[in-house]
């Protein structure tokens, strides 16, 4: 699964990362832990770094399935 990153967190992953997740899926918190250990980036564990699945923000408990479009976004700020 290809995961994309936006905002400050993107620099730590070069914009995107490739990981395999189980068929049964993985909660956002589990995927964060996997990314943190695989790429040695603890910043992704921060609660302020939010997951978007299929272009909608989801909570840490949301279960990601293979085939989802998954992105991690640093805190947003407009205006």
């Amino acid at each position: 699964m290809q995961i994309e990153f936006y905002g400050r967190i993107a620099a730590s992953f070069g914009g995107a990362a490739q990981v395999e997740i189980p068929e049964a899926g993985l909660p956002v918190s589990g995927l964060k832990a996997l990314l943190a250990s695989r790429f040695n980036v603890d910043a992704v564990l921060h609660r302020a770094v939010r997951a978007a699945v299929n272009n909608e923000f989801v909570p840490e408990s949301h279960v990601i399935r293979p085939g989802d479009t998954v992105e991690f976004l640093s805190p947003v700020s407009g205006g």
Binding site: Y6, G7, R8, L73, S74, V76, S77, G78, G79
Partner: peptide, 9 residues
């Protein structure tokens, strides 16, 4: 907009 518009500055 300051807290929810999806931008990174």
């Amino acid at each position: 907009l300051k807290t929810e518009a999806v931008f990174w500055k």
